[in-house]
Amino acid sequence: MSAEANMTTTNTVTPNTINIDGQDIPFKNGQTIMDAALAAGVYIPHLCHKPGLTPHGSCKLCTVDIGSRSMSTSASDRRTQTKFSVDIDRRSVSACTTPAVAGQQISNDTPALNEVRKTITQMLFIEGNHLCPACEKTGNCTLQAVAYHLGMLDGHFPQFFPRREVDASHPTVMLDLDRCILCELCVRASREVDGKNVFAIAGRGINAHLIVNSPSGKLVDSDLETGDMAVHICPVGAILIKEHGYEVPIGRRTFDLHQVGEIGLEPVILAKARHTNE
């Protein structure tokens, strides 16, 4: 095949497909890159995304590189006028919030992206108090599983050891802010699925923290109930159900038996959280 013919082949864009790491993936209009990838069984690391909830784009673990996107650049585009040769179409985006557009050439599982994702994960670990051996969620924790996936061996940065409060006021639910990673899954689940608005994030930057919508600020005075999705959706050990600790022994938990990259695991994790005796 001549070089010219080869170029023609690679430039042919099949309608409604994106390309992730060389694999053509179909998508429906309105789907994000994450939606299309998950539907096709391609894992993009993520913590703040859960299918069915409004994408949030805050954890940045699903950062992917888009090589060329369908957009025209005119000669007056200032980005083309630099004296350096730069690929102006190359950009990093959150897969969970970026709509899939036909012809996108996406890099996902690359050493460079996984190294950046590992650094993000290390920062999440050292900013909170994530002491896995002392946490009931160990083995069922998505943060931990993503860290395993990325081969994280240490925290790299100096530990913050922040002092955060435990809210044990609720009869059946415990809130340990030591482990909160501010993914807002509970915030969105409470608002969008439970219709309650129990949680919110207050403060900015390093002062951002999870708050409870009740007159006292305590969980006991909120309308949170054990059956709420917000109680079961926490990817880490920040929201725990009381009196159900260590029912599954360490070594036989979800991520002791599965990799986080196995697609279709989300319903398994949620079901397990709701029916711990299964």
């Binding site: 108090n129 002491l131 002392a134 061996l153 050891f161």
Partner: peptide, 18 residues
């Protein structure tokens, strides 16, 4: 070589840092 959770992030003894 740092061996084990305590060597790597302080581990359970570091819970006194609160």
């Amino acid at each position: 070589i740092a061996v084990g959770a305590c060597a790597i992030n302080g581990g359970v003894p570091a819970m006194r840092n609160h």
